[in-house]
Write a protein that binds this DNA or RNA. Structure first.
Lengths: 167, 167
DNA sequence: TATTGTTATACTCTATAACTATA
DNA sequence: TATAGTTATAGAGTATAACAATA
């Protein structure tokens, strides 16, 4: 009976691309956050750290906000936290005294390395029941859908100003 | 330079299955919520309506909470809203006077039909750059990953009690 | 006058616990 | 005593607007 209900349920939206991707993506994000937590990092801090580390020139807070689609107001507390943990330093920009240059520390880069390792391990879990070529297919198809949706590589929609709900 | 940064960014996590699925899924959920809003429905109300409509026997609030992985406290306001809009009726269960039986109204079922049509239209958008067989592949692969993650068909992780964050 | 970073306030959503009425 | 539904309170997270310092 529960099984019958589920069957009917599926037939409506449960197997739509939109729902399936949302379901899998939400669970992935939960798992990522859970596995990141023991490192004392949350996903937003990870995004900022990664953005700083992979930029060639030093970034201002406003630049980070722009890159990740966030409002600069919401970057302040994030940098506060990263600075308190000793992973990022604020340095006054000598060229523009209003702004701070954000510098990831050695400890911050080590943290980032460990966080990236967690992403890789999580991918192993997601791919557990797929062959190698299926993994490549899925990655390729998802990347094409991401492009179709206008998503920039590495920029998560939840980082941006968002409407008040989703699920 | 922006392009260079992105390349470096991607190489770290931007093309992981975990991040790609989370990114695509989050955007799908946003789009779904946006397209649903003009119907005066939110995604949680949609989930409840759909669950009620596809159940063979009438459900109690607690049963809806169980089916969707929600806490019963959080179902109350949802049913309040659905009842206020005339899409669901509460009827005292004659067999158990503590409980309500939830009955979707004809107007509620019409709303649900329109919401389901929105899911279908959204799928067309997601699939815009894929061939028919690629759509089937993607659906199949996502469903298998969903199974691997222990996700029940039609039950969105965000409906459940959740840790305080995800992106 | 515009921009960078900051702070303050209000609002939404959720978790938790306590309450009532039935069983 | 346990359970269905309800209500109240507190907390996290965000949006918005306003502020100081500098351009």
């Amino acid at each position: 009976m529960t099984r019958d209900r589920r069957t009917a349920y599926e037939s409506r939206y449960g197997l739509s691309l939109a729902f399936l991707s949302s379901q899998v993506g939400a669970r992935s994000a939960q798992l990522f956050a859970e596995r990141l937590a023991p490192l004392d990092v949350n996903p937003r801090e990870f995004a900022v750290l990664s953005n700083l580390a992979s930029s060639e020139e030093p970034l201002h807070q406003q630049a980070v906000a722009d890159a990740l689609g966030m409002h600069r107001n919401n970057v302040v507390a994030l940098i506060d936290a990263l600075e308190a943990k000793g992973w990022v330093r604020r340095e006054r920009d000598s060229a523009d005294r209003r702004a701070y240059v954000l510098v990831p520390t050695r400890a911050g880069l080590r943290k980032l390395g460990r966080a990236n390792a967690i992403v890789e391990k999580l991918d192993v879990v997601l791919a557990a029941s797929l062959t190698t070529s299926e993994v490549d297919q899925l990655r390729d198809l998802l990347a094409r859908v991401a492009g179709e949706l206008g998503l920039a590589p590495g920029v998560h929609p939840h980082l941006a100003a968002r409407p008040r709900h989703s699920p």
